[in-house]
Amino acid sequence: MTEHQTPDLLPPAMWTAPEQALWQAHHAGRPLDLRTGDPARDDPAAGSDWPEERFLRAEVLAELLLAGPPKSGAVARPLRVIGARITGKLDLSAARIDIPLSVKSSCFDQTPTFDHADLVALDLDGCHLPGIEAEALRVSTWLGIRGGRVGGDLWMFNARIDGTADLGDTTVGGDFTLGSSVMGGGLRLTGFACGGEARLRSCRISGDLDLAGAALSNPGATALSASGLTVDGSFLAHGLTVRGEANLTGARIGGTLALVDVTLREPPSTGWVLLLIEAQAPMARLRPTAGSRGRVSLRDAHFGRFVDDVVGWPEAMSAELDGFTYERLTHRTSDTVRPDVTQRLTWLARQTDATSAGFSPAPYE
């Protein structure tokens, strides 16, 4: 770089052609799109075969981010990349980034690190990554990792997202850790898939937690660990599939706890497939599918209105009801078959299958 090539006028001469193109695009306020237009060739799953014309070094992204907004403009322009292969390790540990970062439909050679970083916004939609390390990450607006693939673990313990976090349709091959995190908005996990343990222990979510259509698979072990979870909105899990144990012990839900058309199976050796011990919500809907099997614990749970499915309750499921209380027991208005007294008592009698203590009078009172 000559004395006239300042960072705000020309990109560093030693940068590659796509990296210089990124510099130009960033300073012009537009994204750098390296896609070919061929969906098969642009699939990030094939990113290891992409040519060097699509390579961007992680250190170049870090340099542009740490430099802050281009001084040539008054508006803080985001750094936006589409369809790139990010080589090297993107390490933004403890960094304060004053511009939004958006890397979409790209692949990362190495696990990016955002530990203790303070970001405006982070968008990794459609990306393939070996993992994500983001302990104590702070995001002041929005976090998006939609339709992506994380081959290993996604670690985001003790994070704080002031807006909404959206991981819809993303697959995590290992563990997903969001324990002790705070969401100023909602947490969207619709269509989300996890091949290890999904950990939401002691999370605080100001909006809704949406797990509709999600698949959590850790057979014979804990698939969903969400004890101490607090959701100010509703817990929505229509069509959720859990292979393993779902632990919602002590969960506090401000709206509706909706476990409707959920498939629960392959619990650990204890047999517990769903733990709602001491859970509380103004309204709870519990309607497992016919293919569900295992033991459900409602011990010491309390719901204002409890909507269940006595008629369609799976034969291979039993329930622990000791200390379980509710203010009103009801059914869906759309139910064409409504339980009679005998069917209700038969369902309540299932508690003897779930606890060695035998009969408990509380659910009858």
Rank of each mutant, 00 (worst) to 15 (best):
T2D: 12
E3Q: 10
P7H: 01
L10F: 04
P12W: 03
M14C: 01
M14Y: 04
W15M: 03
T16F: 04
Q20H: 03
A21H: 01
L22E: 00
G29R: 05
L32N: 00
D33Q: 09
R35V: 04
A40R: 08
A40W: 04
S48M: 09
P51I: 12
A62Y: 00
L66N: 07
G68K: 11
P70M: 04
K71M: 07
S72A: 14
G73W: 05
R77P: 00
G83T: 11
I86S: 04
D91W: 02
L92W: 02
A95M: 10
D98W: 07
S106L: 10
F108M: 07
F108N: 04
T111M: 13
T113C: 12
A121W: 03
L124D: 00
R138H: 14
W142T: 10
I145G: 01
G147K: 02
G148T: 02
G152W: 01
D153S: 06
W155H: 11
N158H: 10
N158M: 12
T171N: 10
V172P: 06
G174F: 07
L187D: 09
L187P: 02
G195Y: 07
E197G: 06
A198N: 05
R199Y: 05
R201L: 12
L209M: 15
L211M: 13
G213M: 12
P219T: 06
A221T: 11
T222V: 15
T222S: 02
A223D: 04
G233D: 11
E245F: 01
G250T: 07
R252G: 06
A258W: 02
L259S: 04
L259V: 09
D261I: 01
V262T: 14
T263E: 15
P267K: 09
S269D: 14
T270F: 08
G271C: 12
L276D: 03
Q280Y: 07
M283Y: 04
A284T: 14
R285F: 03
L286Y: 07
G291E: 14
S292M: 12
G294A: 14
R295V: 14
D300W: 03
V307K: 01
V311Y: 05
M317D: 10
E320A: 14
T325N: 14
Y326T: 08
Y326D: 02
R328M: 13
T330F: 05
P339N: 10
D340V: 08
V341H: 10
R344I: 14
A357N: 09
